[in-house]
């Protein structure tokens, strides 16, 4: 098994809306995989299917060799998940949060103690063990959140916009920890809107309107599209699907005017 994630023709429909449309991709083990796309493109739906929270309409997904459809509970045990608004209990201390998640993931008392101290060291939370989570700054909160998601040492960790709203220094500190995890052999599946972060990924994947637009290491995408930065690539893909911004804006105005005319006709 060389791939941490294998997705085949994965589809999710909500009524008539197709949120994710027959996507295919695979994530090699030990790689940092950037999953990029604008808001509402199907990123979160894909992640929720990978975590075993929602059932796909069609297709299959294998996480660390486990079939998501057949054994969603086993998948949950073998991955770590962290989102922008990670569920830290803000009336509990750093230590209590870590110990709680360690126990939820079924670690024995001895393992819990060992992992707790390891994570505190890894996330640079020494001296803050007894602080309530609510008193931590945004950067420390996200590092603690990452620690909680990684407390059971999963082979794959899924990060959904983990650095949204953080200052540049905190973002860099956060990414240093992510890098450390990846060097330790953990596969990282991450979504972000910061293209500087995406450029640091081993491979990136663009999803838009529920379909995958491109999948390659970031330098390769920039070279292929003959653009300067990954941000330009991102914008190009979105415009390719929507038409040019000028054409769009004209279409939108016509729609508004047409709507007005129809409304005014009755008077």
């Amino acid at each position: 098994m060389n791939n941490a994630i294998v997705v085949k023709n994965l589809t999710k429909k909500f009524g008539t809306l197709t949120a994710v449309d027959r996507i295919n991709f695979s994530v090699p083990r030990g790689c940092v995989y950037g999953f990029l796309g604008p808001n509402g493109s199907g990123k979160s739906t894909t992640i929720r299917m990978l975590c075993g929270i929602i059932r796909p309409t069609a297709g299959s997904a294998t996480i660390m060799g486990i079939d998501v459809l057949k054994e969603p509970e086993k998948v949950k045990q073998s991955i770590g998940y962290m989102s922008q608004k990670f569920g830290l209990y803000d009336d509990m201390t750093v230590k209590e949060n870590l110990e709680f998640y360690a126990e939820i993931y079924g670690l024995s008392p001895a393992e819990r103690k060992k992992r707790r101290d390891e994570i505190i060291g890894m996330a640079g939370l020494e001296g803050k063990e007894r602080c309530l989570a609510r008193t931590l700054s945004g950067g420390f909160k996200q590092r603690l959140a990452l620690g909680c998601a990684f407390v059971h040492a999963p082979g794959l960790i899924i990060l959904d916009e983990p650095t949204a709203g953080l200052d540049p220094v905190s973002r860099r500190a956060f990414w240093q920890i992510v890098r450390t995890l990846a060097e330790g052999g953990t596969t990282v599946f991450v979504t972000t809107h910061y293209m500087d972060e995406a450029e640091g990924c081993d491979t990136t994947c663009f999803i838009f309107n529920g379909r995958i637009m491109a999948q390659a290491p970031p330098e390769e995408l920039i070279r292929k599209e003959k653009l300067k930065t990954l941000e330009d690539v991102f914008i190009k893909y979105v415009e390719m699907d929507q038409g040019t911004p000028e054409a769009n804006s004209r279409k939108r105005w016509l729609e508004i005017l047409g709507f007005r005319r129809r409304n005014g006709g009755g008077r």
């Binding site: 975590c51 075993g52 929270i53 509970e73 949950k76 045990q77 991955i79 998940y81 989102s83 608004k85 990670f86 569920g87 830290l88 209990y89 803000d90 998640y101 939820i104 993931y105 079924g106």
Partner: peptide, 16 residues
């Protein structure tokens, strides 16, 4: 309260 604070989302992705 857990739903309002978003912690329930996190519990859902654990094996609980």
């Amino acid at each position: 309260r857990e739903r309002e604070k978003g912690t329930i989302e996190q519990l859902i992705v654990t094996p609980i």
